[in-house]
Simulated scan of single mutants.
Amino acid sequence: MTSSSIRSAGYVPVAPTLDVDTVDEFTTLDALESEAIHVFREVAGEFERPVILFSGGKDSTVLLHVALKAFWPAPLPFSLLHVDTGHNLDEVIAFRDDVVARYGLRLHVASVEDYLADGRLTERPDNVRNQLQTVPLLDAIAEHRFDAVFGGGRRDEERARAKERIFSLRNAFGQWDPKRQRPELWNLYNGRHAPGEHVRVFPLSNWTELDIWRYIAREQVLLPSIYYAHEREVFERDGMWMTAGPWGGPREGEQSLRLSVRYRTVGDGSSTGAVLSEAADNEAILAEIAASRLTERGATRGDDRASEAAMEDRKRQGYF
């Protein structure tokens, strides 16, 4: 894929900031990558039907990149699963589909729109759909009999995720019980589960947002262009810069402005905001993140602000 075709498709190639050919020592990124590759290979050997959750966001893209390296030159032995709310940004869906086509992967899509259309789910009054992903996710896991589900969650993102092990057992209803967390000493992982149960697996648990971006730079991982500063029509709501879409636009009293913004995280467009930024390349983003005192979810995810335990409550119901 040429540079011009990448940009026209909405992607930005990232120049590496680290010349790995001149580095002899085993770096932190090497250790994190090695751990993640070990996790992928453990799951491949222990489970029958694993799947990778892939949304096209930066974490799931890095997750897929590591998975491809773990089994190269053999093909990836897992399929992908995306729970599509119907409120995703166009650039992200285009990127998701391009990645699937580029690597010849199999993608399962669980559509929230389908559940709303046939009455299995009901639209929320606030038009936010992140909380509606749980039922389609659990149904897809049951339908395809997935016994291990990889996700790009990291412990630095949010308090509830900080509690979770790399192998996280879920019961027959997909629910998470902190009391059933298993010890993981010396990188030994227990994937034992009863019929109907499954395990959520987080190979990037020990990474930070800064690690993710350093790795993106080193590996030249392509991302949707919205992760880099660009001009966009936005309006301020609850301290976040939101963009209009099928979920609605500015309400009365909310002024639309064209500003330079970028997204630190990608989720449901009705609850995910952008941040004011001029960081158009990896070096500037690294500096910006290093100076931030808020995680990307704390800064730009409205659904996590509902309560102190918002994420943990959803995880107990079966959310990722």
Rank of each mutant, 00 (worst) to 15 (best):
Ile6Pro: 00
Gly10Glu: 00
Val12Glu: 00
Pro13Ala: 01
Pro16Ala: 03
Asp19Gln: 10
Val20Cys: 10
Asp21Gly: 13
Asp24Gly: 06
Leu32Gln: 02
Glu33Val: 08
Phe47Asp: 02
Glu48Thr: 14
Arg49Tyr: 10
Arg49Ser: 04
Phe54Leu: 14
Gly57Cys: 11
Ser60His: 04
His65Ala: 12
Val66Ile: 15
Leu68Gly: 12
Lys69Tyr: 07
Ala70Lys: 05
Trp72Ser: 15
Ser79Gly: 13
Leu80Gln: 03
Leu80His: 07
His82Cys: 14
Arg96Phe: 03
Arg96Leu: 09
Ala101Ser: 14
Ala101Gly: 06
Arg102Leu: 10
Tyr103His: 12
Arg106Ile: 07
Leu107His: 01
Leu107Phe: 08
Leu107Thr: 11
Ala110Lys: 00
Leu116Ala: 07
Leu116Cys: 05
Leu116Gln: 04
Arg120Lys: 12
Leu121Arg: 09
Thr122Asp: 01
Thr122Arg: 05
Asn127Met: 05
Arg129Gly: 08
Gln133Phe: 11
Gln133Met: 13
Val135Gly: 00
Val135Met: 03
Pro136His: 03
Leu138Met: 00
Ala142Asp: 06
Asp147Cys: 06
Gly151Cys: 09
Gly153Cys: 02
Glu158Leu: 05
Arg161Trp: 03
Ala162Met: 01
Glu164Phe: 03
Ile166Phe: 05
Phe167Ala: 05
Leu169Gln: 03
Arg170Phe: 04
Arg170Gly: 00
Ala172Arg: 11
Ala172Cys: 04
Gln175Cys: 09
Asp177Phe: 09
Gln181Arg: 10
Glu184Gln: 13
Tyr189Met: 14
Asn190Pro: 06
Gly191Trp: 07
Glu197Gln: 15
Val199Ala: 04
Val199Trp: 01
Arg200Lys: 13
Leu204Asp: 03
Leu204Thr: 00
Ser205Val: 12
Ser205Asn: 04
Asn206Gly: 11
Asn206Pro: 04
Asn206His: 11
Thr208Asp: 00
Asp211Leu: 01
Tyr215Met: 09
Tyr215Ala: 03
Ile216Asn: 02
Arg218Gln: 06
Glu219Asn: 07
Glu219Thr: 03
Gln220Tyr: 12
Gln220Asp: 11
Val221Pro: 11
Val221Gln: 08
Tyr227Val: 02
His230Lys: 15
His230Glu: 13
Glu231Cys: 01
Val234Asp: 04
Val234Ser: 03
Phe235Lys: 02
Gly239Ser: 06
Trp241Thr: 07
Met242Trp: 13
Trp247Phe: 14
Pro250Tyr: 13
Pro250Phe: 15
Gln255Thr: 15
Arg258Gln: 12
Leu259Cys: 08
Ser260Gly: 07
Arg264Gly: 15
Gly269Pro: 02
Ser270Pro: 08
Gly273Ile: 10
Ala274Arg: 14
Leu276Gln: 04
Ala280Gln: 05
Ala280Asp: 11
Ala284Tyr: 11
Ile285Asp: 06
Ala287Val: 09
Arg293Ser: 13
Thr295Cys: 10
Gly298Ser: 06
Ala299His: 11
Thr300Met: 05
Arg301Asn: 12
Arg301Ser: 10
Gly302Tyr: 01
Gly302Ile: 00
Asp304Gly: 07
Ser307Gly: 12
Ala309Ser: 13
Met311Trp: 01
Glu312Tyr: 05
Arg316Cys: 13
Gly318Ile: 09
Gly318Val: 05
Tyr319Gln: 02
Tyr319Cys: 01
